[in-house]
Design a protein around this nucleic acid. Structure first.
Length: 505
RNA sequence: GGUCUCUUCGUCUAGUCUGGUCAGGACGUCAGGUUUUCAUCCUGGUAACUCGGGUUCAAAUCCCGGAGAGACUACCA
């Protein structure tokens, strides 16, 4: 068997949405699993839809995701260039070849004329198709002499090249995910292969490049399934061996029906893109998973399980584990509705698995950026270690640990009502005195001696602990009291108790 | 409209090829437990085979028919 070579071939028409990321991911996993190569090819044959910055966005996003390419314009490769606009000169000869073989023909119909035919057909509740029937009555080389055609071309009449779909044939194709697919050629239309602007359409460029780049497997979204027969016939017309095809199920809207789109993210309040994006023309912005605080590992993990499963009950996967476990056979056929809650859960799982050091470092940066708080890295690490398992995102750490960085200025009324008793102030005084006398201020020792002190004196455990919590945190939440005490330090703790007693009395 | 694809808990899915476990897991949700706090965590509950026929001792699984959903239907990819 030949070497496995797959490609991810986006169009730089905007930010890459998560469906595209998943397609890239599955290509990557398949390539790595089979010891093959992953290629990035930019399909920019439609110059009217070009969006500045989109290509850069795609490259950076996939890099953030940990999806690496073996060949591209960025890392090189022996089949470059890997951008279709830079391969423009290659395509005409293939278009000519099909013309010579009689597998394609020249059409002079203008876009406006065709538009008119479509409208007329629609008015009669019919569909206009450029096919074996209608092409007999349209302005193309099938109905003209060679001289006529040459003359028109010579005087600069714009023309397109259309593929001539053979009549009365059944095309039987094999899809790695869907099995056999049968299509009658009479239901197909003569697609344009070469545009009047001198550029190939997707269909031609795609087949030519896949062939030239020795692509072995085409793994792409289900929206391409209807053009598979065209592609198969193109390979046949050229006399080339076709790659294997696999059409992935679509990513659907969480509510209602339909393909997931940019609008859904705005509407439902979750990112549809891997990274933040600003549209250069409109200035519109779109949020990204990266900026929303997701770890790339969690994002990829979630995406991998949306349309594929390992057949075991394992849900948390590293990229390497995904590569080991992946197979196209275990991809599902039906579209998957995107689920925000599960996505958050994946991030939670990954956050818990991260080291205190790593989370602490992220938290330190977050504190500086969002709260303008400078904090010692070791302190941030200790705080992160104490509360990281309680949250989904680094940014949520604040709500669980703000009291480590600022003393309470007010006290949660509900907690005060529930926990602050008549003799609490007096008890806090005694506790402060005892705490002041603790020599070894480690969490372990505080836990030990504080408990001994309370039980030894037959104090009410709840009265002391809940009171202290209110003094130190300002609310009825947070880690164990001894942990808070130890991290805050004796001096700060005593200050807070004194201040709290003064306020609550 | 036409062509193609798909159809198991609210969601992601296992199971379908090779009929035979109370249809399994996860997210969500609900209830307990742990935490003398809150959160996490743990335990348990909840909830599905699109419908109708047929084959069979037995059908989510095989066959036929209907229904629904999605994609495509551009000189866009």
């Amino acid at each position: 068997m030949n070497e496995v070579r797959v490609r991810f071939a986006p169009s730089p028409t905007g930010p890459l949405h998560i469906g595209g990321v998943r397609t890239a991911l599955y290509n990557y996993l398949f390539a790595k699993k089979n010891g093959g190569k992953m290629i990035l090819r930019i399909e920019d044959t439609d110059q009217t839809r070009f969006v500045p910055g989109a290509e850069k966005y795609i490259v950076e996003s996939l890099d953030w995701c940990g999806i690496k390419f073996d060949e591209s314009d960025y890392v090189g490769g022996e089949y470059g260039p890997y951008k279709q606009s830079n391969r423009k000169h290659l395509y005409k000869q293939y278009s000519d070849e099909l013309l010579e073989k009689g597998c394609a023909y020249i059409a002079f119909d203008t876009a406006e004329e065709l538009e008119q035919y479509r409208k007329e057909a629609e008015a009669n509740k019919q569909t206009f198709i450029y096919n074996c029937q209608s092409r007999k009555h349209l302005r193309n080389s099938m109905n003209m002499s060679k001289e006529e055609v040459d003359a028109l071309i010579a005087n600069g009449t714009p023309y397109t090249v259309r593929f001539m779909i053979p009549e009365d044939r059944e095309i039987v194709m094999h899809d790695l995910i869907r099995g056999e697919v049968h299509v009658q050629t009479n239901t197909l239309d003569d697609k344009v292969l070469f545009k009047s602007d001198g550029m190939p359409t997707y269909h031609l460029a795609n087949i030519v490049d896949d062939h030239l780049m020795k692509i072995s497997h085409v793994i792409r979204g289900e929206e391409w399934l209807p053009s598979m027969p065209l592609h198969v016939m193109l390979y046949e017309a050229f006399g080339w061996e076709a790659p294997q095809f696999a059409h992935l199920p679509l990513l659907l809207k969480p509510d209602g029906n339909g393909k997931l789109s940019k609008r859904d993210g705005d509407r439902l309040g979750f990112p549809v893109f891997p990274m933040y994006w600003v549209d250069p023309k409109t200035g519109d912005t779109a949020s990204g998973y990266k900026q929303s605080g997701y770890y790339p590992e969690a994002f990829i993990n979630m995406l991998a399980l949306l349309g594929w499963n390992p057949g075991t009950e394992q849900e948390i996967f590293t990229m390497d584990e995904l590569i080991q476990a992946f197979s196209l056979e275990r991809c599902s056929k039906s579209g998957a509705k995107f689920n925000v809650e599960k996505t958050k859960w994946f991030n939670h799982e990954w956050l818990m698995r991260k080291s205190e050091e790593e989370v602490g470092k992220d938290y330190q940066a977050w504190l500086k950026a969002e709260k303008n708080i400078d904090v010692d890295l070791n302190f941030a690490i200790k705080v992160a270690g104490l509360v990281k398992d309680r949250v989904n995102f680094v940014k949520e750490l604040w709500d669980q640990s703000f009291f480590f960085f600022e003393a309470p200025t007010e006290y949660d009324p509900v907690t005060v009502k529930k926990r602050w008793k008549e003799n609490s102030a007096e008890m806090m005084g005694k506790a402060a005195e005892f705490i002041n006398g603790i020599e070894d201020f480690s969490a372990e020792n505080i836990d030990k001696v504080l408990n001994e002190w309370i039980t030894g004196n037959e104090f009410n455990m709840g009265l002391v602990m809940n009171g202290l919590r209110l003094m130190l945190v300002g609310a009825g939440k947070g880690p164990h009291i001894h942990e808070i005490l130890a991290l805050l330090g004796k001096e700060e703790a005593l200050k807070r108790i004194e201040a709290g007693v003064k306020v609550l009395g």
